[in-house]
Every structure is written in C-alpha cells, then in structure tokens.
Design a protein around this nucleic acid. Sequence first.
DNA 1: AACACAAATGCGAATTATTCGCAATAATGT
DNA 2: ACATTATTGCGAATAATTCGCATTTGTGTT
Lengths: 150, 150
Amino acid sequence: MRPPDFARMLRRSGGRATPGRLRLMRALWKEPAPVTAARLQKSLGRTLNLATLYRALDALAGVGVVRRVDFRHGHAHYELAAPARAHHHHLACTGCGAVEDVSCTLRPRLKRASAFSAITDHAMEYFGLCKACGARGAERVSRTRTEAME
Amino acid sequence: MRPPDFARMLRRSGGRATPGRLRLMRALWKEPAPVTAARLQKSLGRTLNLATLYRALDALAGVGVVRRVDFRHGHAHYELAAPARAHHHHLACTGCGAVEDVSCTLRPRLKRASAFSAITDHAMEYFGLCKACGARGAERVSRTRTEAME
DNA sequence: AACACAAATGCGAATTATTCGCAATAATGT
DNA sequence: ACATTATTGCGAATAATTCGCATTTGTGTT
C-alpha cells in the first residue's frame, strides 16, 4: 500500500498543502502506533516548530484527517485517521506502554441518544497487560513510569 | 440509592479512609458527570489541596475505584467507577461540552489479543452534537472554546 | 489507651504539555 | 504576477499535573 495523496487530502479539507504538513502526514503515515507531538517532531528531524506542529495536528484532527488518542499517559497521542488509515482502536499495556491495533468489529449501535442530534466520532481504548508484562507480574505501574517508557 | 460505604471501599483497596478521601468520594458520588480535578476541589470548598487531590485521584484510579475520562478537552475528568457506579460510557457534545451517560450495552469481545495477556479495562467515548448545538449549526467549536464552557 | 509506621497531606516550587501573540512567509485562486 | 489568507517560527504565557519534604494522622498492634 502506497501512501495516499496527502496534498489532495489537505486541500480538499480546506487547508493548504504546505511542505510542513505534507512531511507531517508522511511521518504519521509511517508510524506504527499513535505518537506524541514531541516524538513526531523528533521524527521530523526537529524541523517544524512544536507550536506549528500542534496547530497542524489540531487543524487536521478538526477535519478528521488525524485522530487524537488518549492512553491516560498525561499527554495526547496522534495518528492518521480514515480514509488514510482504516478505522480501528487500541490495546494499550499499562505496564510498558506497548500499543497494539484492534480492528473495530463492534458497531456502536446506541439507541437514539436522547439529547444528541448526531454522533460524529468515537474513541475506544482497551487497557491491559501485554504478555511480557503479564508474565513478569507487572500488576501496576505508575503513570509516570509508563510515560518515561515511551 | 444511598451512598456506598466509601470508608470500607477505601480500606479494602489498601488505602486509608481519611476524611479528605471520604469527602472526595462523597463529592464524586454527587456529580452527575465526570469532573475536572479543579472543579472537584471547588466543590469541596477548596479545602483539600490540589496536589493531594490529584494524588488521591491517581491512587483511587489505580485500584479501580475512580475512572479517568478523556473528552479531548486538554485535561482529565474523573468519575466514580464500579462498584459504586454502574459501568457506562459517555456521549460528549463537541459544541458545548454537554455530557450524557450511555449504558454499556456492547460486550467488547475481542478475539484473543495476540500480544496481550489480559484486558483489565476499557474506555469509550462518543463525540457528537447535542440537539441544541446541532440545531444552531455548531459544526466545529475550537477545543479552547469548549474548555472555557465547562 | 498508648505506640509505631506507613500512608496521606499541605505547601511551594518545578515540570510538562499545550497555546498565544505577532510579525514574516508562502500557498492558492484569479 | 497579485492579492488574499492560511501557515509558520519564535518566544513568552498558560494550564495541568507532579515533586520534594517536613508534618500529621489513620491503622493494626501491644
């Protein structure tokens, strides 16, 4: 699978296909799991200012190109969303921070939400222990510890 | 439904039933929706130091008494978890920040997660527009704006 | 009822993540 | 080539959350 036409995606979503955002999307495309803004910046060779990066991520998330994920680590993680990337969810190890994708098999079929007119998105993350951590009996690891590990 | 025996819950989870934590849990018990640490502190009359509050929330979340929820607002929200409160999820309005509970009808039945030995928890939030925001055409509200509203 | 000890608290300072203001640049449609 | 407007970089500002440390206080035990 070759990378989608990011330039077109950006323009169609009302934005501009700036070199910065294109590099950002290509970098995200290569990431195997959701990344923090800081790591993303590093993977871009520290070009692209962090504030700019956050603004881009926010804008992209706003039009649904990027997805913001929460692993309860105290900071956000980002990943490409559909259509560049198939809809899916995550399994996050509370021991070491390992993350694994889970295909989204369940169709969240809520009964008509009383006070809502539309459901536009949903987030779902599973938490548990990967085999390694489960084996070593890593019952509970402090959040701080977990963060340090990524 | 009368409030559970928080003192006992605390002790059983390996902690102490200090007046502070008891007040904290009673306050959480009364909240109709997940709250931020700051608001919780305010609802406690600003007694209970904020650092202490965070430590308590973290500890309680660690033993599963409290649940940390992410509405993509840039800060965490907390609520009581089972058994004090039935398992459920949320519907969050991206326009005004309104939150509504959703009973958890779906049984997340993942096929044995390859690299995981145990799934201990999961989080699921739905995002959309409440009727009010949907009507007034509040397509997109900046995250900052949303935060200010809570 | 008095103890011993670890857990919990308060305070203030430190970190971290994320956002802002503003002037300078650059992508797009015409 | 131009005008318009989004985007960028920078440095400073916020906001949320955590830390260090001395002090207090539950709890299980004598």
